[in-house]
């Protein structure tokens, strides 16, 4: 039996939803995967991790992991790996988890594979490259364990109703390796559903022309109800909306029932983050925009006319 470990990222709101997906990946080749949960709320998270298939959860609630992201977690993992010798450690392809994986690779010298979408066993995994147009099968060599980062939403989380054995861990992290420390946190107040959870995602790109036009998407979202607003990297890089809006290779991966893109041409970097949507609607004035070609419904037209008219029509329907 291959010893599969899952690095369950602990956020301020509990375990990252991707942790449950990682357990589903792990269970495809290991019936009894182990989860490692580091940070405040880790012990509490163990029940949910167990309910998604973790047989064992190593948990440590020490605040050092949230205060100093990355390095202390990699240090503790390296110690645990030396003692327990797993075959593979799975990470979510998030900024925080991949920092832990990168650090860990530097200390243990194992193979690390990024952007995987599925895993066959600890030495074989698959990734999509070039915006998801090619699939590559990769074989991993080097000392165990292999480190594999899986893209969020490449598999559905599967509740098993199980219960994990919880093993408490001590955080033995020397002062001199703690590294950078968080001294302030700033969160944008979010209203409505999270981008990753919304049934409808409305995304704006360069074609919106500036930050003010996002108000059209906000209004449409509120009329539809349960919709979230996102953006392409071009709109985020231009500073029109914050990074938390970004959908794509860098940024969030979404799989809504309906994805409506306004003024987004469809660079590979963006497509990776939304191609799993059930239905894709693209509005673009350029008939050659790549996203129009992959949309279920492509609209060649002026989004400044289509969006307000669409909002008005849905309001009228709902009102009647």
């Amino acid at each position: 039996m291959a010893g599969a470990w899952v690095f369950a990222e602990i956020t301020r709101d509990g375990p990252h939803p991707a942790a449950f997906e990682l357990l589903a990946h792990a269970r495809s080749f290991d019936d009894d995967p182990t989860a490692i949960a580091l940070g405040q709320g880790a012990t509490e998270a163990a029940a949910e991790l167990g309910a998604h298939g973790a047989a064992t959860v190593y948990a440590c609630d020490d605040p050092v992991f949230a205060e100093h992201p990355g390095r202390p977690a990699a240090h503790v993992l390296a110690g645990l790996i030396e003692a327990e010798a797993p075959d593979v450690v799975l990470f979510a392809q998030t900024y925080d988890s991949r920092d832990v994986a990168g650090r860990l690779q530097g200390s243990i010298g194992s193979a690390l594979m990024g952007n995987a979408t599925s895993i066959a066993d600890p030495r074989h995994a698959r990734a999509e490259i070039f915006g998801g147009t090619k699939i590559v099968d990769v074989e991993l060599a080097g000392p165990a364990p292999t480190l594999i980062l899986l893209r969020p939403k490449s598999i559905a989380a599967e509740p098993t109703g199980g219960t994990a054995r919880v093993v408490p861990l001590e955080a033995d992290v020397p002062e001199d390796i703690r590294g950078a420390r968080i001294v302030e946190r700033h969160e944008e107040s979010a209203s409505g559903p999270r981008l990753e959870d919304a049934k409808v995602v409305l995304a704006g790109g360069r074609g919106l022309g500036g930050p003010d036009a996002f108000a059209m998407l906000d209004e449409l979202a509120s009329v539809i109800g349960g919709a979230a607003v996102g953006a392409s990297r071009a709109a985020v890089d231009a500073g029109w909306v914050p990074y938390s809006y970004q959908i794509g290779q860098t940024g969030k991966t979404v799989k809504p029932d309906v994805y409506l893109a306004a003024g987004i041409s469809g660079a590979l970097q963006h497509v990776v983050g939304m191609k799993g949507a059930k239905r894709i609607v693209a509005i673009n004035k350029d008939a050659d925009a790549p996203l129009l070609a992959m949309a279920d419904l492509g609209v060649v037209g002026d989004l400044f006319q289509v969006l307000p008219a669409l909002t008005e029509e849905i309001r009228r329907r709902k009102g009647s």
Partner: peptide, 25 residues
């Protein structure tokens, strides 16, 4: 495979139909 491509004036009606099919409005 790509789907249907429509021009501006048909757009609103078709998007509304698609949203209704998806049961999100």
């Amino acid at each position: 495979a790509g789907g249907e491509v429509v021009q501006g004036d048909e757009a609103v009606g078709r998007i509304v139909e698609l949203l209704a099919e998806a049961k999100v409005i």
